[in-house]
Design a protein around this nucleic acid. Structure first.
Lengths: 360, 360
DNA sequence: CTGTTAGCGCCTTCAT
DNA sequence: ATGAAGGCGCTAACAG
């Protein structure tokens, strides 16, 4: 016979044990210091501790004393890019005492919307959508509807990365970064380029590639100077792209991978194919996740302050703790008038994987 | 003037819009198919959709229709070790439709307990404690109390890694892995060893080091053959340990880092100090996080199926979906009688960073 | 200061 | 098959 689960301990029980009313117990546990007699308060606190009372957050939420709760939607925590952003976000959340709920979409637009809906259902105070959006109109409509509804009941939300949707956002300068890569490579003497890209429906991919291509254009080189290969936005995708490039004769002296994760895949594939980096081919990624410097050879990238982006995004929705005091003097109007968009610079970091071209 | 947040849409409103009672609306939305008339059901569903109704999860929880919710407590998602485990866990959670809440402790015992309490407050159905426990008695008492209370109200919990606490657990064979490292190194001809360890209060560290040392003992070598350096359990700790070793004269031909993250730090430091791996010093880590194979040189490690561990742990608390049908024939008694402990093997993977000693 | 009362939004008997 | 009523645990007015 299995034991029946004991019932949870309620405030009422604590109140009874302390010989007071539930209201007093509630006040003693949460209310300001000067709102309940010292002796009673002590009795209540002690009873609660003895009974190991833990408030029922659901009941509290229903009776409006909601604890700050924020939902995080992202592709996959185990991807170093998202992991770094998440870390920054969690730091700020912790500082606010906010509880974080996590949703992994594994890049499915449907799951993304589903999670937003779930968080809405949980009455999350804020929702963070991390990672590139999709350009599919159905997705956009559904997402917009969810988000607006959330906002209408007083919820906040913000994006990390572009989303073609109104709202606060933390935006890496993807286009500028892509352009900077092109210029760095041009300066080293490269004239024929390969780009390992992800699906163009991801705005991040689109912007990085566009930035790169436009800088090549501006340099007066023909479009044919850059050969774009589209694969999955993952390590395997990078691997596939590299294979395709090598199989196709490798008519390039430099390879730009639109993400570090792809660059890692490409590096592996190139090694397998006997293509030497940087001797046969210069390589550069994007994001500058921590491991890039440790790779063999140390691999160039475009530095983004990932943790900073995570922190900033969380601040956007939770409010900067230090700014709480600012509103003291007057109206904190504006809000939602025009969304705040915080840009993060993207800076090329050249390492051993990138040199001047050594063959023609 | 800021708009007042609109009130959330309630079931009652949906019911009214559909011209039925709240009870009927509730049934139409959740109940089995044959419990409400087709026409009414259609009206309700449509009204709900039109109003973009989302149930209030708190109210549902209070009225006992709780959605599966599991709390995950860990050191830091951005650490690849935890990221991989989390990924596995999230996969299974998603398959169960469970919502995951995340707590980052940044290795503070207090925060760990605090998060368990928070999850308890949220009435999480299950709690997963990921990562090495602490051997501090106060911590153990407090944690035990929290967990037991959770269990008493029907909650489940499980550990990933050792915790000196009763309960289901997924356990990497740390001691065996440490011993295997020692044997591999011995076999290659090494006789003087350095170990970069984390704080011995972490059970994981303790077991890995103990396994290593005992295998050295068994080989008949003196205790002085292994020089243990204790530092932070982090990349910086690995770096510090390597520096200390080099400064101390480096009287060893092989360095065993108790985690890959430490090994990465050590590798960096060694390169900075002009110590060549593996020529001057063989190096091996533990965990085999994905990047190890990409490092320069490719770095040996002890393989652990991190994602598998995460999946298994989540299965332990959520129940294996496929095993749900097993109980069909009879009593699913036992439970809690004796905790389930699932061991995961640790297998040495030798790469370029480890060779026979080349100097004496 | 403290107790009483009335919901928060939903689900689930219990009648019909 | 549907509706009415009660309660989940807590807090926020109101009284005293």
């Amino acid at each position: 016979m299995v034991d029946q689960p004991t019932r949870q301990i309620t405030l009422a029980q604590v109140a009874q044990a302390a010989g007071v009313s539930p209201a007093t117990a509630s006040r003693a546990l949460h209310g300001g210091d000067r709102i309940v007699g010292d002796e009673l308060r002590a009795r209540v606190v002690q009873a609660a501790r003895r009974l190991r009372y833990v408030p029922n957050a659901h009941a509290q939420a229903l009776a409006n004393r909601a604890r700050a709760t924020v939902g995080l939607v992202m592709h996959d925590v185990s991807d170093p890019y998202f992991a770094a952003i998440t870390r920054g976000a969690m730091e700020v959340a912790a500082a606010h005492g906010a509880l974080v709920m996590l949703g992994s979409t594994f890049r499915s637009p449907d799951r993304e919307i589903e999670y937003v809906s779930t968080f809405r259902s949980q009455r999350a105070q804020a929702i963070l959508i991390v990672g590139s959006g999709f350009s599919d109109p159905d997705y956009l409509d559904a997402m917009r509807a969810e988000l607006f509804q959330h906002r209408d009941v007083g919820g906040r939300y913000a994006f990390v990365s572009h989303h073609d949707l109104p709202g606060d956002a933390v935006l890496p300068d993807n286009a500028a970064g892509g352009a900077a890569v092109a210029r760095s490579l041009l300066e080293l003497g490269h004239r024929r380029f390969a780009v390992a890209a992800g699906p163009p429906t991801l705005t991040t991919v689109e912007h990085r590639v566009a930035g790169f291509v436009s800088a090549i254009d501006e340099a007066g080189l023909p479009r044919s100077a850059v050969h774009v290969v589209e694969r999955e936005f993952s390590e395997n995708g990078g691997r596939d792209a590299a294979h395709a490039l090598v199989r196709g004769g490798l008519d390039a002296t430099a390879l730009f991978c639109v993400s570090d994760v792809m660059a890692i895949g490409a590096l592996t594939a190139l090694r397998e194919q006997g293509v030497s980096v940087p001797h046969d081919l210069s390589l550069i990624g994007f994001d500058d996740i921590p491991v890039m410097r440790h790779l063999c050879p140390a691999t160039s990238s475009v530095r983004l302050d990932l943790e900073g982006m995570g922190r900033e995004a969380m601040r956007l929705v939770l409010g900067d703790p230090s700014s709480d005091e600012l509103g003291a003097d007057g109206d904190s109007v504006e809000e939602a008038v025009d969304p705040r968009r915080v840009h993060f610079p993207a800076e090329v970091v050249l390492r051993a994987s990138t040199t001047a071209p050594t063959r023609r």
